[in-house]
Computed example of a mutant assay.
Amino acid sequence: MIKGSNPDQVQAGREEDSIYVLKQVHASNRCPNPFKVEALALSEKCISSGARRPDNLSGQSSSCWPQITETFEKLAESTKELFRRRLRRTTLVLLVINFTLAFGYYGLFLWFPELFSRIDKYGGSFCDVKTGNDTGSNSSECESPSNEVYIESFLTSISNLPGNILSIFIVEKVGRKPILASSMVLSGLSVFLLAFVQQRWQNVLISCLFGAISVCGFNMLDVLQTELFPTHVRSTAFGMQTGIARIGAILGNVIFGQLVDVNCVIPMLLVASLLTFGGLSSLALPNMTGLDIH
């Protein structure tokens, strides 16, 4: 019997499941001593909150509001801690990086099939935008794109794979922060070049480079977010960072679509500038390579 055990382990009344988890932890630690836990003792706090063993749960009803209130209080406290002096700079810098990376990547990447289709119809670069009225005929607007468009889109999508593999081998040798910064800056440079190339193979090549390089930034960002935040606020930080990234992705997709027909150079420069700015901002983060997380 474990006296004074953490009430969260059995608060839901799942004592058998809690013991099973403890057995797994015991086995993972390869402890030479046999596992002897047969039951869990509820603390006074846990008993007063209404927790029961599974065989006593039938017919029991209790209000969920205390737990909901406690959850929101913990969330508010964790959020406040993220903006206190010790973590404020890290939180703000990572918010900027998440927004700019998601805005730039999804703003451009989701539009690649449409941009390849325009190259297939009209030739030239992404920014040689024409409409059916410009060519004197609307028939081309109703034509299906050639198979090469789908092949090019496939190549651009699969270009993430080399970047993922490369990240595995260089993350410890180069470091998280240098890879994140260089990835975002080089991604921004590749987007800038897309507006000026004229050959079809050049467009495909730079688009693949963009996919391969930018995915390294996403990988390093995930690692840094895990290492830079303490355990007790890490889940809250992840939720906040993911939320701002989703907002950036939505805005990037919408704004790019609105501006691409006005002047293609404008969204290209916007994406390139934001990616570069986010990459340079990452230099303000602490370097966690070789350090233990806490």
Results as ranks from 00 to 15, higher is better:
Ser5Val: 13
Asp8Gly: 00
Glu15Ala: 07
Val21Pro: 00
Leu22His: 09
Gln24Val: 10
Gln24Ile: 12
Val25Gln: 04
Ser28Glu: 11
Arg30Leu: 08
Cys31His: 13
Ser43Leu: 01
Ser43Lys: 03
Glu44His: 10
Cys46Gln: 10
Ile47Phe: 11
Ser49Asp: 11
Ser49Arg: 14
Ser61Ile: 14
Trp65Pro: 00
Gln67Pro: 00
Thr69Ile: 11
Thr71Pro: 03
Thr71Phe: 14
Phe72Lys: 13
Glu73Arg: 15
Ala76Ser: 15
Ser78Pro: 05
Lys80Leu: 14
Leu92Pro: 06
Val93Phe: 06
Val93Asn: 02
Leu95Lys: 12
Leu101Trp: 03
Ala102Tyr: 14
Ala102Leu: 09
Phe112Met: 15
Phe112Gly: 02
Pro113Leu: 07
Phe116Met: 05
Val129Gln: 04
Lys130Glu: 08
Ser137Met: 04
Cys142His: 09
Cys142Met: 08
Pro145Thr: 05
Asn147Pro: 00
Ile151Trp: 07
Ile151Ala: 12
Ser153Gln: 00
Asn164Cys: 14
Leu166Asp: 01
Val171Phe: 02
Arg176Phe: 08
Lys177Trp: 04
Ala195Phe: 03
Phe196Gln: 01
Gln198Tyr: 09
Gln199Asn: 03
Trp201Thr: 09
Val204Thr: 08
Leu228Glu: 05
Leu228Gly: 01
Val233Lys: 06
Thr236Val: 08
Gly248Met: 10
Gly257Ser: 07
Asn263Val: 10
Ile266Asn: 09
Leu269Tyr: 09
Ser273His: 10
Leu274Ser: 10
Leu275Ile: 07
Thr276Cys: 13
Phe277Pro: 02
Phe277Lys: 06
Leu280Gly: 04
